[in-house]
Design a protein around this nucleic acid. Sequence first.
RNA 1: GCGCCCGUAGCUCAGCUGGACAGAGCGUCGGACUUCGAAUCCGCAGGCCGCAGGUUCGAAUCCUGCCGGGCGUACCA
Length: 554
Amino acid sequence: MALIRDELRSIISKALKNGLSLSDDFEPEIEIPTIAQHGDYATNSAMVLAKTLKKNPREIASKILEFIEAQNPDILERVEIAGPGFINFFIRSDAFSSVLPIIYEQGKAFGKTDIGKGRYVQVEFVSANPTGPLHVGHGRGAAVGDALARILESCGYRVHREYYINDVGKQMTILGRSLYLRYLEVLGKAIDFPEDHYRGDYMKDLAQKFFKEMGEKYLNTPEEEALPICTKYAAENILEGIKKDLEDFRVSYDEWFSEESLHRGGAVEKAIEQLRNRGFIYEQDGAIWFRSSLFGDEKDRVIVRSNGAKTYFAADIAYHWNKIERGFDTIINIWGADHHGYVPRIKAVVDALGLNPERLKVILVQLVNLLRGGQPVAMSTRAGEFVTLREVMEEVGVDAARYMFLTRRSDSPLDFDLELAKAQSSENPVYYVQYAHARISSLFEVGRERGVTLDLKKAMSNLNHLKEPQEIQLMKLLGEFPFVLRKSAEYLEPHRIPYYLHDLASTFHTYYNHHRILTEDENITQARLALAGAIHTVLKIGLELIGLSAPDKM
RNA sequence: GCGCCCGUAGCUCAGCUGGACAGAGCGUCGGACUUCGAAUCCGCAGGCCGCAGGUUCGAAUCCUGCCGGGCGUACCA
């Protein structure tokens, strides 16, 4: 037993091979026409081939058609050539039910594929500086990265989730000093808190905590001695908070990678050496430059300043050298769109270090435009004006927040209105999908109370009773899931999953409102229960893929 | 100035990997619960797909130019 789409693919491929002597590497495009009159599926292969074969598309189509009919496949009702050269397939209505035994056989593994073939993929995401709590923008990156990781895993990739901690540099010094000043303030000293320091209330809270643990120990310590301690304390505490936030947002990591470890271990020098050996390093005006312009960047970049200090970019070179050394087949960086100018230079780095730059994928997640009642909310970590991810989680819930983040393409800016998210919470689309799941759970519960349970053997021999158009539609949709999942992984687009789930839930709700599942006819009941159960399974799989709960009761 | 992203229904967004009449949610208005969950369903209204050219059998989709919005453009991180 195979899915209809797979069968069609092999039928078409066979016809192309036998009829047009095409090699196997031509992948026929199979789509679902928007209009039912155009069949259940259609392929544009004849028109695509018309260009290379230099023949009339309809002529090619009729050739293909001839070889399709020669196979006499039993899933086909009929095949037609239409319009400029489409081949439309009308599937026998009793063929769609083949998806149900497959779902029951595979269970939670339904939809999984091995297109990844065990390739090792790193997904680096969030990677916010440990200078303050995560805000909503980070939440979007977290939701996208985590969903993507789950999707890739279910498509046969080996996934490594990583967070890069920028625990070095000027902002760390400022962080330490911010804590130190707030600490002195707690001890009653008058302080002058600079404009460019971290002004958020969380620093005051942290100072209180610091004071409780340390007492007045650092009151009279010289500033240069106290600062490293303050920096370390602040960074560790804030990072712990970030970890907790992400954990509560249902995001997990395999590795927390410290930038500082690169400097400490000499990796930055080694990476520069790598570039130097390859001839991409030169000195000018007392600074050390990387010839990134050779690889498509608009200009060369400084990696060691004339004062001897390494730039952030130097560490990033070392970090990506490290990634390459770890043997990832694909490196995926999920960045905020404000870093887009950085893409060419980091591509240049991997290119210069000998890795095909195609193997580095940078997903730019557009900024979250936070609104409250239609009014923009200013966001600045330093000024302490922002809405944290934790506040959003608490206000609208993890499920709703994640769904909100994931129902948009990453490269589309997102308006996130807190008032709206709260006000519409009971009509939020996320509940629509979850409701379908809960409804089916409840349905089985009612069945049990009435002594009706799904008898798989019996159900499977009664699938011929599923012939209502809505039932056909549902089975067709169920069969699409593996392909949606595959495309989602292929294009690194998690938003395809929630859209699919909404479609499936919607079709089910319609069906549910028009037909009874627990009927007087035992055979029909069994068949319909099998259908409902399969939908239940796919909804659950899909919800988990994007990190949402699949409740049995709401 | 240059570069990247975005512009689709009143609002928020899919469709952008060329396919056949442009979709969904919210919102408006009107209907459906003594029967498996009404957080649901059914129906009405709503569009020069930013504008103008081009490529193609075929363009919301690709190319060029323009207009609007966002972001970036450091020997900052």
